[in-house]
Simulated scan of single mutants.
Amino acid sequence: MKWEGQRESNNVEDARGGGRRGLPIGGRGLGVGGIVVALLASWVLGVNPLTMLGLMQGGGTQAEAPVGDSQAQDPGYRFVKVVLADTEDVWAAYFQRSGQQYQMPRLQVFRGSTDTACGQGEAAMGPFYCPADRKVYIDLGFFDTLRERLGAPGDFAQAYVIAHEVGHHLQNLMGTTEKIDRLRGRATERDVNAMSVRLELQADCYAGVWTHLSQRGKGWLEQGDIEEALNAAAQIGDDTLQKRSRGTIVPESFTHGSSAQRVHWFKRGLESGDLKACDSFSSTAL
């Protein structure tokens, strides 16, 4: 992915100087079984289910570390700013074509923990979107987890994660999030899980639409980039995580969708380049 030298978003906040410093991702700690538990916990806590994908580690907290100029210029931080900037450009142009104005989200990079309008954000939650303040939150250590523990390396795998969270922002702008929240209040646990799956798959599809439009506009993807995103989508499928953790698969407990479903919906958005192709809530969609 040829991202160096591209525009960087001004809607990124670096909050890595405050709060409790996160635990090291690459060391010993939680296995895939624990990751599944974290996914379930994310739903109980009311956080986007994608957010708990890799993160709870054993051990104590570390001392707080200040943010310096070199940290603000580190490649991972700059990469996030570039990807967010491109989502801004793509979605602003898309909305403008239909006579609407795109309201850009903000993105906060933090270390360890941070305050959000959805409650306390923790590194153990991974990337997540908070509808209440319209912000995406990322502890950059998650990308180490994505690469080293979830088997999804590559810069475009990371871009897919960011685009997925921005997809949740689109759902918020379009009223989808509010509608689903209302339905959840009177649904059974099984139905709630099913709605969560459809919400996540639509965000995957939106990430695919962004990929299509971004590549058409910039041509910045390189050989293997799309495969990185598809692999990431497959590695975080519910069936893949469940099989790794306990050897059995329980479809009614899915909250994200199977690996095949996540790949399918990302590819659907990628091939169409149109949000209208992302109706994962149709009764026959899955």
Rank of each mutant, 00 (worst) to 15 (best):
I180V: 15
D239P: 03
V161A: 11
Y94M: 11
A194V: 03
P75K: 09
L140P: 04
A65Q: 08
W43R: 12
R147F: 02
G208Y: 00
L241E: 03
R182L: 15
V90L: 06
A85T: 10
G167V: 12
G217P: 01
D86P: 09
G17H: 10
R184H: 14
A229S: 04
A232S: 13
P66D: 13
Q120E: 08
Q73Y: 12
A163N: 09
V263K: 15
L170S: 12
V36A: 04
H256C: 04
G154F: 14
L39K: 02
A260C: 06
N231T: 15
Q215S: 10
S113Q: 00
K2V: 02
T211M: 14
E13Y: 14
R28S: 00
V263T: 15
D191T: 08
R246F: 12
N193L: 04
L45V: 10
D74Y: 00
L146N: 10
T114F: 07
Q223S: 11
A207D: 03
S272Y: 03
F281T: 05
T116L: 04
Q171D: 06
T188K: 03
M104I: 01
D139M: 02
L221W: 01
G237T: 12
L221I: 05
W43V: 10
G99S: 05
R216Y: 08
F143A: 12
G154C: 14
R134H: 06
F142V: 05
S258F: 03
Q100A: 14
G18N: 13
V32T: 14
L270K: 05
E189S: 10
G257I: 12
V166A: 11
T211Q: 11
F143G: 04
H256W: 04
A232T: 10
H169R: 12
L230M: 15
D191H: 08
C130F: 13
T114Y: 02
P153D: 06
Q71R: 12
A65L: 11
E148H: 05
D115R: 15
L201Q: 09
Q100L: 15
D14N: 07
V37N: 02
L173H: 10
V161D: 02
V209A: 01
S283T: 10
A233R: 15
S283G: 02
Y137D: 07
R216V: 11
L84G: 00
A92T: 14
D74H: 04
Q202V: 09
R182A: 15
F95I: 05
D74M: 11
Q96R: 15
Y77M: 05
S282G: 11
